[in-house]
């Protein structure tokens, strides 16, 4: 039968071993993985400024990006590819709450410059390799008919 000492060893060895593996993989992800996957070389100053705006206005509090955030407003990972820059800028620069089909967004009234930064950020994130996310809707082809 298992003794308390053996149980303690199981805990300590398991925790140590899996922590080491986790830290090793994290190291690789941080050093090589993320820069490659997100094309960090394309991360311009405008992209970073867009990211600051993203953080400042807690966009994740309603939207998702890379599938992360809240579920009140659309997924924005591919919004640049889906809607194009002009549409996004119109939404961000609107002085009145943008309310597609009734659901209100906060009216941020961005300046042209700010809106451009956000567009650059969304363009950059849309080009990242997210291992197939978001998936192409299976039944979308039938919708057109």
């Amino acid at each position: 039968m298992l003794t308390k000492r053996q149980a303690l060893l199981f805990f300590l060895i398991g925790t140590f071993l899996f922590s080491i593996i986790f830290i090793g993989l994290s190291f690789d992800t941080v050093r090589r993985g993320i820069p490659e996957k997100t094309h960090e070389e394309n991360m311009t100053e405008a992209v970073v400024k867009g990211r600051v705006l993203w953080d400042k206005h807690n966009c994740m509090g309603c939207h998702t990006i890379m599938g992360e955030g809240a579920y009140y407003a659309p997924e924005l990972t591919k919004v640049y590819q889906r809607r194009g820059p002009e549409f996004i800028k119109a939404v961000l620069m609107s002085e009145k709450p943008w309310a597609p089909r009734g659901r209100k967004m906060v009216a941020y009234g961005f300046s042209e410059e700010e809106a451009n930064h956000m567009v650059e950020f969304l363009k950059w994130i849309g080009e990242a390799d997210l291992n197939g996310f978001p998936p192409e809707p299976t039944f979308k082809k039938y919708l057109k008919n």
């Binding site: 149980a7 398991g14 925790t15 899996f18 993985g33 996957k37 390799d129 997210l130």
Partner: peptide, 30 residues
């Protein structure tokens, strides 16, 4: 307390690398 060790052992055994389920689609390696 013996079983407490086993349970927290299982937690870390699965939970630490289980963090990976947040890294599927967020710009991280396959």
């Amino acid at each position: 307390e013996k079983w407490l060790y086993v349970i927290v052992g299982l937690t870390f055994l699965s939970g630490i690398l289980g963090t990976g389920h947040h890294y599927y689609y967020t710009g991280t390696p396959e």
